[in-house]
Computed example of a mutant assay.
Amino acid sequence: MEPFPWRIELGEHPGVVLRTLELGDWIVEYDLSRVPDVPLWTMYPADLDEERAKMRADLNLQLAATGMGIRYVIDERGTALGTAGIGRGRHGFEVFYALKPEARGRGLVTGAVGALVSWLNANGERDIWLSTLDGNAASENVARRAGFERVDAGTHVDGRPLTNWRRRG
């Protein structure tokens, strides 16, 4: 597999790119941790302080260097709207995302997921995974629009029920 790209254009959304989340992007981590439904539906911890937000950003760069995963900033002309990423799990790579409320409803996450899946497919990954916590209708819609199919039920690391989705490339 090639090294993770540092930047991915979202062609169907002019001016929007995925760019590697770096230490200086700690503020998007901080901001997303304060959106009430982001920690509810994702792995984001609630109410990160500056130090912990910087630690998460630094960890992203360390993981990217190992080839185990990477997170990107969803960036529109210099404004951070959220994050999207990939990580190697037990069955292969999984995609994940979080978006600020003001950027929702525009297809940005579906576009980001599609771009990440395309890159993974081009690098030999055939089965791509996505998990949604039960009740997260918005993420279930993203999964469907991005071509994922429901596979089975599971349990989140914190005990909450979830659904596993797969897209075959």
Rank of each mutant, 00 (worst) to 15 (best):
D58W: 13
R150L: 15
L40P: 00
L18E: 04
E51F: 11
V35L: 05
G11I: 05
R56V: 11
W6C: 15
N136I: 01
F96G: 04
G78D: 13
L40M: 14
T155I: 15
E22W: 10
R19H: 12
M43A: 14
E12L: 13
N60A: 06
S139L: 08
N164Y: 12
S131R: 10
Y97P: 01
A98S: 05
V28P: 05
P5W: 05
L23V: 11
P101F: 00
G85D: 00
E9V: 06
A64L: 08
R71S: 05
G105D: 05
T66E: 13
G135L: 01
M68P: 02
L48S: 01
V73Q: 10
V38G: 10
E51W: 09
G15C: 09
G135R: 04
R150T: 06
R168D: 02
R168S: 13
R7S: 12
L99P: 00
W6D: 15
D127F: 06
E50Q: 14
M68N: 14
G78T: 14
P161Y: 05
T20C: 09
V35C: 12
A64R: 04
T66K: 12
L63I: 08
D58G: 15
L162I: 09
A84E: 07
Y72M: 07
D49I: 03
D152A: 15
V17F: 02
E102F: 09
E9Y: 08
F93Y: 08
K100C: 01
D58L: 15
E149Y: 08
A65G: 13
D58R: 15
S118H: 00
G147K: 08
A115N: 08
A80G: 12
L10Q: 10
R90A: 13
L130K: 04
R150Q: 14
I74S: 01
T79D: 14
L130P: 02
D37K: 12
G85C: 06
L63T: 08
S33Q: 07
R71H: 11
G69M: 09
T110Y: 02
D31S: 08
P14W: 04
W6Q: 15
P5F: 07
I86N: 02
L99E: 05
V151Q: 11
A115F: 02
W26D: 11
P5I: 11
M43K: 13
Q62F: 14
H13C: 10
G82I: 06
P39T: 02
T66G: 00
T66P: 03
F96K: 10
L32T: 03
L32F: 10
P45C: 00
L116A: 03
E29S: 09
